[in-house]
Design a protein around this nucleic acid. Sequence first.
DNA 1: CTAGGAGCTCGAGTGGACTCGAAGGCAAGC
DNA 2: GCTTGCCTTCGAGTCCACTCGAGCTCCTAG
Lengths: 166, 166
Amino acid sequence: MTTTTDDLLSIGELSAETGLSAHTLRFYEQENLFLNEVSRDSVGRRVYRRADVLWLHLLTRLRDSGMPLADIARYADLVRAGAGNERQRLDLLREHREKMQAEMARLTASMEAVAQKITLYESALAEGKPEQPWQDDQGDCMVVPPPERSGRQQPPRYTGARQQHG
Amino acid sequence: MTTTTDDLLSIGELSAETGLSAHTLRFYEQENLFLNEVSRDSVGRRVYRRADVLWLHLLTRLRDSGMPLADIARYADLVRAGAGNERQRLDLLREHREKMQAEMARLTASMEAVAQKITLYESALAEGKPEQPWQDDQGDCMVVPPPERSGRQQPPRYTGARQQHG
DNA sequence: CTAGGAGCTCGAGTGGACTCGAAGGCAAGC
DNA sequence: GCTTGCCTTCGAGTCCACTCGAGCTCCTAG
């Protein structure tokens, strides 16, 4: 019945509140991503607290902005260790922010190149030129080549809209 | 010797020019991502043309902006089909651009939430408050909860700096 | 003649973050 | 009693874009 006592939550309730599937919540626990041991009721079912919801909000934000679970786990470790390491936490967050800014810049650059290509197509189509200057098999309308080497990087994937639990 | 005839390239040369590993280039070919069959020399080695370099620039841009290889393959199909489907190509690119814009918005939102958290930490540290208002285990300084459900989405990964062929 | 390097094919492995399914426990409602 | 529904554990599968290795051929330099 997923008892709705004010501040204790079943996994189903937490799932509903966070949008994370029950499977995912168990998985996160197993990966040590919670700030405290998840307690159990008399028959072994997980019992969560309000604070967990808040933490999962932060966690989700970090994930959504591209932080790997491993890094989030390290952050959680720091918090679990208690007061005194605030500077380290801050460093971790700052580092992440920088990576994200770089990532955004990369994305923006590629998007702009693509946008330029779109513009070329648009104007060519508008002027009714059916196939002259922008034949892709000549590649000649791709103006901006990608940045030099510096190691392959993995792009985001908007794999989007994966079904959540259901 | 990877003969440097003006406009014909060995796989090694193409690799050098594009920053994609030879392995990756073979993989792309197998996935039908080239605009034309890659021809072979007398002993079966791949021979590329200048136009392939240009196309790979576009391909790389599309990848880097998050387009899945499957979609790129569809685009390549259109180009291969020759003139007459320009509108479809354009649609495909536009659709991609929209997805990317959405992705950027998502990223930006999460980044801002994290940035806010950083600010909170910073000011708390600056004022020398050692542990009062921003205890993570209370979750209470995470102001902006993530957006409502609407299906889980996969974030980018800045897995960055994968070694290229070497 | 030998060594080295580039290329070939095929098939398997990797990593991250889930995602799913099987096999079972327990409580409430019909 | 039986069904329904939520929960448990554990292990395996999925997806994507590579990435790697083995075992081979071929050419050139020394």
